[in-house]
Nucleic acid binder design. Structure first.
Lengths: 104, 104
DNA sequence: TTGTTATATAAGCATATAATTATATAATCA
DNA sequence: TGATTATATAATTATATGCTTATATAACAA
């Protein structure tokens, strides 16, 4: 069972539209920064900074593939996160657009 | 299924230590402002302002009893909230202290 | 090597937020 | 009625936060 303050910190992290979107997209598929830039329609530094907060909190894993760094969710040890994420609507439709896109 | 932005707003609301505490206490028991002031060890206006945010978001119901206004959780129509709340640790031990206390 | 692409980081700014202080409203009681 | 208690609201201040701009780092390709 998580502590009150720990939970509040997690929720603060998810209490931002862009970070919530990043998490909801990563729930569907691993993505690199440039893909998230396109999906969220914001700047690269903005995405990178949100990514960092999520990563610092242990919510993300990263895997470098050449110039690209792919991010994925790391929720195995966080049951409260899993149940939160189960209420996020599917982003599959948005990801379809991505396949037509190239940031590489 | 809740929308991304709506979820982010709910999480922002719960992403504050004091509001998360208020919700976790109300999960156990209806409480008035003066009781929450004692439990959270902060000022009355501070509690009232946090209460207002939670109330504005539809998370709380209020019932006046004389000079006191008792607040309770209103999560019946919010499944994502219910599952979030299920991960909050019990506050029963803290509430025991309250019974020895008097703000009235 | 030089140029290009992907990402990270730092600095600055503008806005949002939490908390305090002061005051107002409302119910109760003497 | 006036005093007290409970709560709400308003104004202020201090801090936190998100975003932009500029720059740095890293991988890769010519």
């Amino acid at each position: 069972m998580a502590e009150i303050e720990e939970l509040a910190d997690i929720f603060k992290l998810l209490g931002d539209k862009n970070r919530m979107s990043i998490v909801s997209f990563l729930k569907e598929k691993d993505l690199c920064v440039c893909e998230l830039v396109e999906l969220l329609q914001t700047s690269q530094p903005n995405i990178s900074q949100h990514i960092r907060k999520l990563k610092d909190a242990g919510l993300l894993k990263e895997t470098r593939k050449g110039q690209w760094i792919y991010y994925s969710l790391n929720t195995a040890d966080k049951p409260y996160l899993q149940s939160v994420l189960s209420h996020i609507p599917s982003q599959k439709e948005h990801l379809v657009k991505l396949s037509a896109m190239n940031c590489n």
